[in-house]
């Protein structure tokens, strides 16, 4: 991944695609031979959370820190105590999947004293095709709300703009433009632009758009997909 931070916190607005990113980042890190743990702190979403990929994590020997399987599908806002041990383990890459918006980010606030400067990156995942974050004002407002609730400062942006199966090059470009504007406002870099690997997007050289283009696989699928 080429990141120096040991701990990556994925924040973002509701439905920005944090969970899929967490899975992808974790699998990539494993491929580089790193010891990896994913912490599912999503107390907002009732479905489609990291814990729903638990078999996948087992298969890739990625540690999943999530509520016990028995309670995995409960709508109880459980924070697994194990997260503290994982965060302190200097050997381990840690990817934290927080819930969306300030409601989801508030969970992070309780760990205020656990984070160590320098080893932490806080990424704001942006899908500019979502309501309320398709404008600079909306995106900026969401970042500020998340920062306040989580007691953290966003250190970078991930452009994950997509419309699911109907994504076009224009959507990604729109997300890219917005990410850059947001980046100027925040004074923080756009770290990556993600593109779903199964999408066949025609008519453009995506590399031209961004030299930080990464592809990702989608793991959490609907039963008819």
């Amino acid at each position: 991944m080429g990141t120096s931070a040991r701990i990556t916190i994925l924040t973002g607005h509701y439905g920005s695609g944090k969970t899929e990113l967490a899975i992808n980042l974790a699998i990539n890190a494993r491929k580089n031979g790193e010891k990896v743990a994913v912490c599912d702190l999503d107390i907002v979403n009732p479905y489609f959370r990291s814990r729903d990929a638990s078999a996948l994590f087992r298969e890739h020997s990625i540690k999943l820190v999530a509520p016990p399987e028995r309670l995995a599908t409960a709508d109880l806002p459980i924070i697994p105590a194990e997260i503290l041990a994982v965060v302190k383990d200097e050997e381990s890459r840690v990817i934290i999947d927080a819930g969306g918006d300030k409601e989801g980010a508030a969970v992070l606030g309780q760990f205020f004293h656990e984070w160590k400067d320098g080893s932490l990156e806080v990424l704001f995942v942006l899908n500019a095709s979502r309501p309320y974050v398709s404008t600079l004002d909306g995106a900026l407002y969401t970042v500020r709300q998340i920062e306040k609730a989580s007691r953290l400062t966003v250190t970078g942006i991930i452009n994950n703009t997509n419309l699911g199966a109907s994504t076009t090059i224009k959507d990604i470009q729109k997300g890219q433009d917005l990410s850059i504007m947001l980046s100027h406002k925040l004074g923080k870099p756009v770290k990556y632009t993600f593109l779903e690997s199964s999408l066949r997007i025609e008519g453009s050289n995506l590399e031209m758009m961004s030299n930080k283009m990464m592809t990702m696989d989608r793991y959490l699928k609907l039963p008819w997909e």
Partner: peptide, 14 residues
Amino acid sequence: GKLLMKGNEVIAEA
């Protein structure tokens, strides 16, 4: 234009 939305949000917006 197109938006990526959750079912519950779509119901409300609709």
